[in-house]
Design a protein around this nucleic acid. Structure first.
Lengths: 156, 156
DNA sequence: ACCGCTTCCGAATAGTCTTCGGCACATGAC
DNA sequence: GTCATGTGCCGAAGACTATTCGGAAGCGGT
């Protein structure tokens, strides 16, 4: 099931098209990858079953939602054990400012990607949201000038 | 038109639903946000026109595609001017390993988010892809244990 | 009240999704 | 070779959905 080593050309094409436009109709998708609509539908469902296609999401522009400023916040958490880490993760993911959170190896423990209204909003988030928490031992913030996300991931 | 400062409750609900499932049918979406299908369709198109909805993308699981290991690569580029930076950005975005690229302020210039097959693959990427380039002055790599992305961004 | 503007709705047509029976081909047993 | 089995693909057809459009309702401004 998960052991299938590679995608064939049609699956790869389906994946590419759906990553570019998740709302394409099944009929159009089938035409683009040169299979019948019924075949295409079954292929898509198989990709979902196998976990290759994990979901479909609309992309909202943070700037259009009043949050044009993005930053990374590197966080060190002490003590770095399960009882502290798990609530911290939940806390960060519940912040409306958070776009993504990584638990990383290195001097810092977490990297939090946030989108905020302006510098004042970022300052408030840092002071009230992060440094006020006991387990937060160290913070380092880097502003993001420009962020590029690649939507189409291909197999290896 | 674009000057409208906030989304009303219906737009916010549409945004939320589409961020959770971009392939929901217009009819179901309309039912969830309590408007007629025709109204819902026009709302969605308006959100696209305004740039709030920037696209619809399938989420592919990098691990299911044979790339279970993720890392951040912090890069310093010298000289840090337009003639060097722009080709570098293009180069990184063309790498199949790249998931995202941020141009940031601070001691490092770029943060590259990559997904690779294993540690050997990462090593090869660093040596052959990055340090072999003239403009790359410094590299720092951090492994990612766990990455959480929030799909539903809300206004402020 | 009246006008102009915007937003919403529901009916109707055009179009799509989804199921299902059957076909074609590959594989392995004998 | 020949048969049985399994897999994947296709196309037809009914069920369902998208999209358009005319008209109604709400809301400020005068």
């Amino acid at each position: 099931m998960t052991g299938n080593p590679v995608l064939d050309a049609i699956d790869a094409a389906i994946l590419r098209e759906l990553q570019n436009d998740a709302r394409i109709s099944n009929k159009d998708l089938a035409a683009r990858v040169n299979v019948a609509a019924s075949t295409c539908l079954e292929r898509v469902r198989a990709l979902q079953r196998r976990g290759v296609l994990a979901g479909f999401h609309a992309e909202a522009d943070p700037a259009a939602l009043g949050r044009p400023l993005q930053a990374y916040i590197a966080v060190r958490v002490r003590p770095h054990n399960r009882d502290v880490v798990e609530p911290f993760i939940r806390f960060v993911l519940d912040l409306p400012e958070t776009l993504a959170l990584s638990h990383i190896a290195g001097p810092d423990d977490f990297l939090v990607h946030v989108a905020v209204r302006d510098a004042a909003h970022l300052q408030r988030l840092l002071l009230d949201g992060f440094t006020s928490r006991r387990e937060v031992a160290h913070l380092e913030t880097q502003l993001i000038f420009q962020h590029h996300r690649k939507w189409d991931i291909s197999p290896i």
